[in-house]
Design a protein around this nucleic acid. Structure first.
Length: 730
DNA sequence: GTAGGGTTAG
């Protein structure tokens, strides 16, 4: 665009120079801008006004082009920075998530104008800091500056995710102030309603905008809202309408449509759409690519496909990398790959942002605790914890999943502020560890502090009640959900209620829930009922639950295994054998039990009766000795838990020996051998802990004087001085 | 000189 050379500079009059710089700014032409900057230094321009004008505009240029360092030095060289260049540099810091520096600069502006306020509000909006954003809004009003659409969309964005009540208030404010004709404001309101789980309200905003009041962003936002609420066909209908109306369809639209397919788990539809996009070249776009990667990782579980998509992208951006990391994270077996991807991303020059950390930290929940510590250290070094509640939340969840409730609480107590997710993570952490009193106390605190609970909060609260048999409380919270907070219970809440009632022995009430719930019950609900039947020995209801379970998930071993062991316990051997035969014929395979433990940053894996570990002889010897002591302390092996192949005729002694070599016992024994007196032990298991192991480890904890924690697929069992944190209610 | 639409935690 700029054809000149520096020799022509003396001939370039200041106004032409100004115009050229303006052109650089509007076209974001960094290269030409830098050339102009070099000329500016050589020019020794004596006109003070023009010189000031130009200095200010160089700050704006660099800020817009995203080169923060250049922007800062241009800003520092400006003797009289005007409000324009202040605003530009504040925005640049905000875009780099350096809100505290943005704030410092804002405080230096002699007379901040509305744009200054808007810029800072949107910076707080980006990090969801409602308190600061609302404070600034108040200031704007006190100064009698006229609020505009930018102000409000920033404030709404900041308040998004803090409960629908706040959004309703803001919506009211918008209508009263006559801002409901601003597309941007309506778009922000629409999105906030959707994020809070209120699709109806989002839809209403969209409809009230009318065709003339909408812009492309409105359509895209509504498509995303539908996708998030699994209204995929509505999303697609909107997309078709957009095309029919001749509206511009861009990368955002494409990405939005993809979220609809993903939420519907409609892989085939998504793939067709992918094919169409290949024809139009959209598939090379990073925005669209992240939608595609999300689709393939969530619906196909195929990271291979994701990698193919990734390789097609012309200019991968940070979001694309984050989506890849998140894809690996969602697949528990690929947590290591998530970590690799995180490293690679940094290697090619991307600085991980809050999202990257959130994804990688949650992958660490499936890895050894020391990896989590390392990533935590990196987060501290990257200075990301101060600014991002989300990363702190992920750390709380990671530490509690890794069995380290103390560190989880430490982070929770030191984080700069709490939001709904923070409370959810901590409440769920306590619930998983069987500390329901702490869980419920925190929930009450949440209500006192006016932090709005959401669907996830209630899952944690209800599961805390279920884990400890607090039926009445559970029922109270279940009805509170809808009555007090307008939250519609989802399938998972019904599962919790079935679990709560079932475990407490109220089987018919649990059955009634499953029969009357407003969805078709899935395998989770039947599994909860089946588990309850096993606990309370109701074979007839168990058969019904198992049949339904198998109908939904024909290849899951759970219903077969549970039901056959129930038959065996009831002495109904023939039926137990028939079931096992059926299982074989149908090719249903039982997942082998497997436990792991980390010693000196190395993970040791044990499979039941596995003899491949180099120290296995020593472990067996140790267990033999331990068994003697255990028996003296009153341990009676519960051979019902020794699941044998039906054709094997086995003696009680053989069964006892098999029990002794269950994976969790081997891992615990290994831990006891390899660590010093008094060091707590953490073992992770891929299935639920077996009843005999539960009993045995209680006794081992007393004999060895150690704290032993087992994390199974349902919860934590923390054994100490002969007792388990679950108080045997599991 | 400033916004709202793609990825993320429980």
């Amino acid at each position: 665009m700029l054809l000149f050379n520096h020799h022509s500079w003396p001939l370039l009059d200041p106004h032409t120079f100004q115009n050229l710089l303006k052109a650089c700014i509007s076209q974001r032409n960094l290269l030409a801008g830098k050339a102009l900057h070099a000329l500016f230094f050589k020019s020794h321009n004596t006109n003070h006004d023009i010189s000031t004008y130009l200095s200010n505009h160089f700050t704006i240029l660099y800020s817009k082009c995203g080169t923060l360092r250049n922007a800062r030095s241009a800003f520092d060289l400006t003797h009289h920075p005007n409000v324009f260049s202040y605003n530009a540099i504040i925005n640049a810091y905000a875009k780099h998530a350096l809100t505290h520096i943005a704030r410092q600069l804002f405080d230096q502006i002699p007379q901040p104008d509305l744009v200054s306020y808007n810029t800072l509000i949107s910076a707080y909006g980006e990090r969801g800091d409602a308190v600061e954003a609302l404070g600034l809004l108040r200031e704007v009003r006190e100064k009698c500056l006229a609020i505009d659409g930018f102000t409000l969309s920033g404030v709404i964005d900041a308040c998004s995710g803090r409960g629908v009540g706040l959004i309703r208030q803001l919506h009211c404010f918008v209508v009263m102030g006559g801002f409901d004709s601003y597309a941007s404001v309506n778009n922000a309101i629409l999105t906030s309603y959707s994020k809070e789980g209120f699709l109806g309200e989002a839809r209403q905003v969209f409809h009230e905008m009318g065709y003339c009041g909408r812009d492309e962003v409105s359509w895209n936002s509504m498509i995303v809202a539908c996708g998030q609420h699994r209204e995929g066909s509505e999303a697609l209908a909107l997309f078709c309408e957009m095309v029919r109306m001749g509206l511009e369809v861009d990368m955002f639209t494409m990405a939005s449509v993809l979220t609809a397919f993903t939420s519907l788990k409609d892989l085939a539809g998504g793939m067709q759409f992918h094919a169409k996009m290949i024809k139009s070249g959209f598939h090379r776009n990073s925005h669209v690519g992240s939608g595609l990667i999300d689709l393939y990782s969530k619906c196909a579980g195929s990271m291979l496909e994701c990698r193919k998509v990734f390789e097609e992208i012309t200019a991968p951006d940070l979001v694309l990398w984050n989506t890849m990391i998140s894809g690996y994270t969602q697949n528990e077996d690929l947590s290591e790959d998530a970590l690799c991807c995180f490293r690679k991303m940094q290697h090619v020059g991307f600085r991980p942002d809050d999202c990257s950390f959130v994804c990688v930290v949650s992958a660490c929940s499936n890895l050894s605790p020391s990896v989590g510590n390392q990533v935590h250290a990196l987060a501290i070094k990257s200075d990301i914890l101060y600014n991002h509640v989300s990363v702190n939340n992920a750390l709380v969840a990671m530490y509690s999943k890794c069995g380290n409730l103390q560190d989880a609480r430490k982070i929770f107590d030191t984080m700069p502020e709490h939001n709904t997710v923070s409370l959810n993570s901590m409440i769920a952490g306590y619930a998983q560890h069987g500390l329901e009193a702490e869980s419920l106390r925190l929930f009450e605190l949440m209500l006192q502090k006016d932090i709005a609970p959401n669907n996830i909060t209630f899952i944690a609260v209800l599961s805390a009640c279920a884990h400890t048999g607090k039926v009445k409380e559970g029922q109270k919270y279940f009805s509170m959900m809808k009555e007090k907070f307008g939250l519609e219970p989802e399938a998972e809440h019904y599962s919790c209620m079935i679990d709560l009632l079932g475990r407490a022995g109220k089987l018919s009430e649990a059955q009634r829930i499953i029969e009357t719930m407003p969805f078709n019950p899935g395998s989770t609900e039947w599994a909860a009922l089946l588990g309850a039947c096993k606990k309370h020995g109701n074979v007839e209801l168990a058969v019904k639950a198992a049949v339904e379970f198998i109908r939904i998930e024909p290849y899951s071993a759970t219903p077969y295994v549970v039901l056959s062991s129930m038959y065996a316990s009831a002495g109904r051997w023939e039926e137990a054998a028939t079931l096992k035969k059926l299982m074989r014929e149908r090719g249903v395979k039982k997942t082998p039990g497997c436990s792991w433990i980390e010693i000196d940053k190395k993970v040791h894996v044990f499979v039941a009766e596995d003899t491949s570990h180099p120290m296995i002889r020593k472990i067996h010897e140790y267990m033999g000795e331990m068994l003697k002591k255990m028996k003296q302390a009153g341990y009676v092996p519960d051979i019902r838990w020794a699941l044998m192949k039906d054709e094997e005729a086995v003696t009680a002694e053989e069964k006892e020996r098999k029990l002794l070599y269950h994976s969790e016992k081997l891992a615990v024994a290994f831990g006891l051998i390899c660590t010093k007196e008094g060091v707590p032990i953490l073992v992770v298991k891929n299935l639920r802990i077996c009843g005999d192991c539960h009993n045995a480890i209680k006794i081992i904890s007393a004999i060895s004087g150690r704290e032993i924690t087992i994390r199974d697929t349902h919860r934590f069992h923390c054994f100490k001085e002969g007792q388990c944190s679950c108080r045997d209610y599991w």
